[in-house]
Design a binder for these strands. Structure first.
Lengths: 127, 127
DNA sequence: GCTACGTGCTACCCAATGGTTGCACGTAGC
DNA sequence: GCTACGTGCAACCATTGGGTAGCACGTAGC
Protein backbone atom coordinates (compact mmCIF):
# COMPACT_ATOMS: atom_id res chain seq x y z
CA UNK A 1 0.00 0.00 0.00
CA UNK A 2 0.98 3.63 0.57
CA UNK A 3 0.67 4.30 -3.10
CA UNK A 4 3.76 6.32 -3.70
CA UNK A 5 2.83 9.91 -3.00
CA UNK A 6 6.00 11.37 -4.38
CA UNK A 7 4.34 13.45 -7.07
CA UNK A 8 6.27 11.89 -9.93
CA UNK A 9 8.89 14.55 -9.37
CA UNK A 10 8.68 17.38 -11.83
CA UNK A 11 12.38 17.93 -11.30
CA UNK A 12 14.78 18.34 -14.18
CA UNK A 13 18.35 18.02 -13.04
CA UNK A 14 18.81 16.69 -9.52
CA UNK A 15 17.04 13.40 -9.26
CA UNK A 16 15.30 11.80 -6.34
CA UNK A 17 14.55 13.82 -3.26
CA UNK A 18 15.70 11.21 -0.80
CA UNK A 19 13.01 10.27 1.66
CA UNK A 20 14.92 7.95 3.94
CA UNK A 21 15.81 5.26 1.46
CA UNK A 22 19.45 4.31 0.83
CA UNK A 23 20.80 5.77 -2.41
CA UNK A 24 20.72 2.45 -4.28
CA UNK A 25 23.87 3.14 -6.25
CA UNK A 26 24.05 3.93 -9.91
CA UNK A 27 25.26 0.49 -10.89
CA UNK A 28 22.04 -1.13 -9.77
CA UNK A 29 20.00 1.28 -11.81
CA UNK A 30 22.10 0.81 -14.92
CA UNK A 31 21.99 -2.97 -14.68
CA UNK A 32 18.30 -3.04 -13.91
CA UNK A 33 17.69 -0.75 -16.87
CA UNK A 34 19.71 -2.90 -19.22
CA UNK A 35 18.19 -6.14 -17.98
CA UNK A 36 14.92 -5.57 -19.79
CA UNK A 37 14.84 -6.53 -23.51
CA UNK A 38 12.23 -3.90 -24.34
CA UNK A 39 14.42 -1.26 -22.80
CA UNK A 40 17.41 -2.40 -24.85
CA UNK A 41 15.27 -2.20 -27.99
CA UNK A 42 14.28 1.30 -27.01
CA UNK A 43 17.93 2.24 -26.59
CA UNK A 44 18.67 0.67 -29.94
CA UNK A 45 15.90 2.55 -31.72
CA UNK A 46 16.91 5.72 -29.95
CA UNK A 47 20.53 5.33 -31.05
CA UNK A 48 19.33 4.73 -34.60
CA UNK A 49 17.15 7.83 -34.69
CA UNK A 50 19.49 10.08 -32.81
CA UNK A 51 16.42 11.58 -31.21
CA UNK A 52 12.88 10.35 -30.88
CA UNK A 53 9.68 10.88 -28.92
CA UNK A 54 7.79 8.28 -26.94
CA UNK A 55 5.04 8.29 -29.54
CA UNK A 56 7.45 7.57 -32.37
CA UNK A 57 9.08 4.78 -30.42
CA UNK A 58 5.72 3.27 -29.56
CA UNK A 59 4.91 3.17 -33.26
CA UNK A 60 7.82 0.89 -34.08
CA UNK A 61 7.89 -1.23 -30.94
CA UNK A 62 5.17 -3.65 -29.89
CA UNK A 63 4.26 -1.81 -26.69
CA UNK A 64 2.01 1.11 -25.86
CA UNK A 65 3.16 4.68 -25.59
CA UNK A 66 2.66 4.64 -21.83
CA UNK A 67 4.96 1.66 -21.50
CA UNK A 68 7.61 3.51 -23.51
CA UNK A 69 7.24 6.50 -21.23
CA UNK A 70 7.79 4.35 -18.17
CA UNK A 71 10.85 2.76 -19.73
CA UNK A 72 12.25 6.13 -20.72
CA UNK A 73 11.79 7.24 -17.13
CA UNK A 74 13.81 4.29 -15.89
CA UNK A 75 16.48 4.82 -18.53
CA UNK A 76 16.62 8.48 -17.58
CA UNK A 77 17.08 7.73 -13.89
CA UNK A 78 19.83 5.29 -14.87
CA UNK A 79 21.50 8.07 -16.83
CA UNK A 80 21.35 6.20 -20.13
CA UNK A 81 19.10 8.71 -21.89
CA UNK A 82 18.20 12.35 -21.53
CA UNK A 83 15.05 14.11 -22.59
CA UNK A 84 14.22 17.68 -23.55
CA UNK A 85 11.13 19.42 -24.76
CA UNK A 86 10.81 20.70 -28.29
CA UNK A 87 7.54 22.54 -28.55
CA UNK A 88 4.89 20.09 -27.44
CA UNK A 89 7.12 17.10 -28.07
CA UNK A 90 9.36 15.39 -25.53
CA UNK A 91 12.43 14.14 -27.36
CA UNK A 92 14.96 11.70 -25.97
CA UNK A 93 18.44 10.67 -26.97
CA UNK A 94 20.97 8.14 -25.68
CA UNK A 95 23.90 9.07 -23.45
CA UNK A 96 26.91 6.81 -24.03
CA UNK A 97 28.99 7.93 -21.03
CA UNK A 98 27.27 6.05 -18.27
CA UNK A 99 27.32 2.86 -20.32
CA UNK A 100 31.04 3.16 -20.95
CA UNK A 101 31.78 3.92 -17.32
CA UNK A 102 29.82 0.89 -16.17
CA UNK A 103 31.54 -1.26 -18.77
CA UNK A 104 34.97 -0.26 -17.54
CA UNK A 105 33.91 -0.83 -13.94
CA UNK A 106 32.80 -4.36 -14.85
CA UNK A 107 36.02 -5.01 -16.68
CA UNK A 108 38.07 -3.99 -13.66
CA UNK A 109 35.92 -6.19 -11.45
CA UNK A 110 36.50 -9.15 -13.74
CA UNK A 111 40.23 -8.49 -13.60
CA UNK A 112 40.09 -8.37 -9.80
CA UNK A 113 38.34 -11.71 -9.68
CA UNK A 114 40.89 -13.14 -12.04
CA UNK A 115 43.80 -11.99 -9.92
CA UNK A 116 42.21 -13.26 -6.75
CA UNK A 117 41.44 -16.65 -8.24
CA UNK A 118 44.96 -16.97 -9.56
CA UNK A 119 46.40 -16.15 -6.14
CA UNK A 120 44.17 -18.67 -4.40
CA UNK A 121 45.03 -21.31 -6.96
CA UNK A 122 48.74 -20.72 -6.36
CA UNK A 123 48.22 -21.07 -2.63
CA UNK A 124 46.27 -24.28 -3.04
CA UNK A 125 48.65 -25.94 -5.47
CA UNK A 126 52.24 -24.89 -5.22
CA UNK A 127 52.06 -22.94 -1.99
CA UNK B 1 39.82 -34.52 -6.16
CA UNK B 2 36.10 -34.98 -6.03
CA UNK B 3 35.21 -33.02 -9.07
CA UNK B 4 31.67 -33.97 -9.89
CA UNK B 5 31.60 -31.52 -12.72
CA UNK B 6 28.11 -30.21 -12.30
CA UNK B 7 28.56 -27.01 -14.22
CA UNK B 8 25.79 -24.77 -15.40
CA UNK B 9 23.26 -27.47 -16.29
CA UNK B 10 24.80 -28.64 -19.51
CA UNK B 11 24.59 -25.30 -21.27
CA UNK B 12 28.19 -24.50 -20.56
CA UNK B 13 29.77 -25.50 -23.86
CA UNK B 14 27.63 -23.63 -26.34
CA UNK B 15 30.72 -22.71 -28.29
CA UNK B 16 30.56 -18.97 -27.93
CA UNK B 17 33.49 -17.17 -29.42
CA UNK B 18 35.70 -16.08 -26.57
CA UNK B 19 35.66 -12.40 -27.41
CA UNK B 20 32.67 -12.38 -29.73
CA UNK B 21 29.42 -10.66 -29.01
CA UNK B 22 27.09 -12.51 -26.66
CA UNK B 23 23.66 -13.25 -28.16
CA UNK B 24 22.04 -10.50 -26.14
CA UNK B 25 19.72 -12.80 -24.21
CA UNK B 26 22.73 -14.01 -22.32
CA UNK B 27 23.22 -10.32 -21.72
CA UNK B 28 19.76 -10.15 -20.17
CA UNK B 29 20.68 -12.84 -17.67
CA UNK B 30 23.96 -11.19 -16.77
CA UNK B 31 22.38 -7.77 -16.30
CA UNK B 32 19.45 -9.15 -14.33
CA UNK B 33 21.89 -11.07 -12.14
CA UNK B 34 24.01 -8.00 -11.50
CA UNK B 35 21.04 -5.73 -10.89
CA UNK B 36 20.38 -7.18 -7.44
CA UNK B 37 22.52 -5.80 -4.58
CA UNK B 38 22.36 -9.03 -2.60
CA UNK B 39 23.64 -10.92 -5.63
CA UNK B 40 26.54 -8.50 -6.00
CA UNK B 41 27.40 -8.99 -2.33
CA UNK B 42 27.34 -12.74 -2.88
CA UNK B 43 29.71 -12.36 -5.82
CA UNK B 44 31.93 -10.16 -3.70
CA UNK B 45 32.04 -12.62 -0.81
CA UNK B 46 32.59 -15.45 -3.27
CA UNK B 47 35.51 -13.67 -4.89
CA UNK B 48 36.98 -13.03 -1.45
CA UNK B 49 36.74 -16.66 -0.39
CA UNK B 50 37.75 -18.16 -3.68
CA UNK B 51 35.23 -20.89 -2.96
CA UNK B 52 32.31 -21.06 -0.58
CA UNK B 53 29.10 -22.94 0.13
CA UNK B 54 25.63 -21.50 0.40
CA UNK B 55 25.67 -22.12 4.15
CA UNK B 56 28.89 -20.18 4.63
CA UNK B 57 27.60 -17.30 2.54
CA UNK B 58 24.33 -17.24 4.46
CA UNK B 59 26.35 -16.89 7.67
CA UNK B 60 27.92 -13.62 6.61
CA UNK B 61 25.06 -12.11 4.65
CA UNK B 62 21.76 -10.97 6.11
CA UNK B 63 19.63 -13.47 4.19
CA UNK B 64 18.69 -17.07 4.67
CA UNK B 65 20.52 -20.02 3.16
CA UNK B 66 17.61 -20.69 0.82
CA UNK B 67 17.76 -17.17 -0.52
CA UNK B 68 21.48 -17.64 -1.19
CA UNK B 69 20.75 -20.89 -3.01
CA UNK B 70 18.24 -19.16 -5.24
CA UNK B 71 20.66 -16.35 -5.99
CA UNK B 72 23.45 -18.81 -6.75
CA UNK B 73 21.10 -20.54 -9.19
CA UNK B 74 20.50 -17.24 -10.99
CA UNK B 75 24.20 -16.41 -11.00
CA UNK B 76 24.94 -19.87 -12.34
CA UNK B 77 22.45 -19.52 -15.19
CA UNK B 78 24.03 -16.15 -15.97
CA UNK B 79 27.41 -17.86 -16.15
CA UNK B 80 28.89 -15.71 -13.40
CA UNK B 81 29.55 -18.60 -10.99
CA UNK B 82 30.00 -22.35 -11.20
CA UNK B 83 29.34 -24.96 -8.56
CA UNK B 84 30.72 -28.40 -7.88
CA UNK B 85 30.17 -30.95 -5.18
CA UNK B 86 32.87 -31.72 -2.65
CA UNK B 87 31.54 -34.53 -0.49
CA UNK B 88 28.27 -33.34 0.94
CA UNK B 89 29.09 -29.73 0.28
CA UNK B 90 28.17 -27.72 -2.80
CA UNK B 91 30.94 -25.21 -3.37
CA UNK B 92 30.74 -22.25 -5.72
CA UNK B 93 33.29 -19.92 -7.22
CA UNK B 94 33.13 -16.87 -9.46
CA UNK B 95 33.79 -17.02 -13.20
CA UNK B 96 35.32 -13.78 -14.53
CA UNK B 97 35.01 -14.53 -18.24
CA UNK B 98 31.33 -13.78 -18.77
CA UNK B 99 31.65 -10.52 -16.87
CA UNK B 100 34.57 -9.40 -18.99
CA UNK B 101 32.84 -10.36 -22.22
CA UNK B 102 29.73 -8.43 -21.28
CA UNK B 103 31.86 -5.45 -20.23
CA UNK B 104 33.58 -5.32 -23.60
CA UNK B 105 30.25 -5.70 -25.38
CA UNK B 106 28.90 -2.72 -23.46
CA UNK B 107 31.98 -0.69 -24.24
CA UNK B 108 31.60 -1.35 -27.96
CA UNK B 109 27.93 -0.44 -27.75
CA UNK B 110 28.79 2.84 -26.07
CA UNK B 111 31.31 3.54 -28.81
CA UNK B 112 28.67 2.80 -31.45
CA UNK B 113 26.27 5.23 -29.87
CA UNK B 114 28.99 7.83 -29.73
CA UNK B 115 29.81 7.46 -33.41
CA UNK B 116 26.18 7.58 -34.40
CA UNK B 117 25.48 10.66 -32.34
CA UNK B 118 28.51 12.40 -33.78
CA UNK B 119 27.37 11.60 -37.33
CA UNK B 120 23.86 12.87 -36.69
CA UNK B 121 25.21 16.02 -35.12
CA UNK B 122 27.38 16.65 -38.17
CA UNK B 123 24.35 16.19 -40.42
CA UNK B 124 22.24 18.55 -38.37
CA UNK B 125 24.84 21.27 -38.08
CA UNK B 126 27.14 21.25 -41.05
CA UNK B 127 24.81 19.94 -43.76
C1' DG C 1 -11.44 30.94 -30.73
C1' DC C 2 -11.85 26.14 -31.97
C1' DT C 3 -9.93 21.75 -33.06
C1' DA C 4 -6.41 18.19 -33.02
C1' DC C 5 -2.44 16.06 -31.68
C1' DG C 6 0.92 14.81 -28.16
C1' DT C 7 1.99 14.46 -23.55
C1' DG C 8 1.48 13.54 -18.40
C1' DC C 9 -0.82 11.37 -14.67
C1' DT C 10 -3.71 7.93 -12.27
C1' DA C 11 -5.67 3.61 -11.60
C1' DC C 12 -5.59 -1.04 -12.30
C1' DC C 13 -4.04 -6.03 -13.72
C1' DC C 14 -1.02 -9.89 -13.81
C1' DA C 15 3.44 -12.13 -13.69
C1' DA C 16 7.93 -12.36 -11.84
C1' DT C 17 11.00 -11.84 -8.02
C1' DG C 18 13.21 -11.72 -3.46
C1' DG C 19 12.35 -13.54 0.72
C1' DT C 20 10.84 -16.80 4.27
C1' DT C 21 9.77 -21.43 6.71
C1' DG C 22 9.44 -26.35 6.97
C1' DC C 23 10.65 -30.90 5.81
C1' DA C 24 12.89 -34.89 3.50
C1' DC C 25 17.19 -36.93 2.04
C1' DG C 26 22.07 -37.97 1.66
C1' DT C 27 26.61 -37.95 3.46
C1' DA C 28 30.16 -37.61 7.14
C1' DG C 29 31.65 -38.74 11.71
C1' DC C 30 31.31 -41.37 15.98
C1' DG D 1 23.96 -48.25 13.34
C1' DC D 2 22.93 -43.78 15.09
C1' DT D 3 23.44 -38.94 15.05
C1' DA D 4 24.43 -34.48 13.03
C1' DC D 5 25.25 -31.42 9.55
C1' DG D 6 24.44 -29.73 4.89
C1' DT D 7 21.78 -29.81 0.99
C1' DG D 8 17.57 -29.87 -2.08
C1' DC D 9 12.75 -29.26 -2.77
C1' DA D 10 8.18 -27.29 -2.12
C1' DA D 11 4.82 -24.14 -0.39
C1' DC D 12 3.89 -19.69 0.64
C1' DC D 13 3.95 -14.39 1.21
C1' DA D 14 4.85 -9.48 -0.03
C1' DT D 15 6.67 -6.38 -3.22
C1' DT D 16 8.23 -4.92 -7.52
C1' DG D 17 7.77 -4.47 -12.39
C1' DG D 18 6.01 -4.50 -17.12
C1' DG D 19 1.93 -3.57 -19.34
C1' DT D 20 -2.72 -1.51 -20.45
C1' DA D 21 -6.62 1.81 -20.59
C1' DG D 22 -8.64 6.25 -19.60
C1' DC D 23 -8.70 11.02 -18.80
C1' DA D 24 -6.96 15.85 -18.19
C1' DC D 25 -3.99 19.39 -19.91
C1' DG D 26 -1.09 22.10 -22.93
C1' DT D 27 0.54 23.43 -27.33
C1' DA D 28 0.30 23.76 -32.44
C1' DG D 29 -2.38 24.77 -36.48
C1' DC D 30 -6.47 26.63 -38.74
Amino acid sequence: MTTDDRTADGRAADGRAADGEPPADAASEVFAALADPTRRRILDALAAHGEATATVLAAELPVSRQAIVKHLGILDRAGLVVGHRAGREARYRVVPERLGITARWMDRLAATWDTRLAAIKRLAEGE
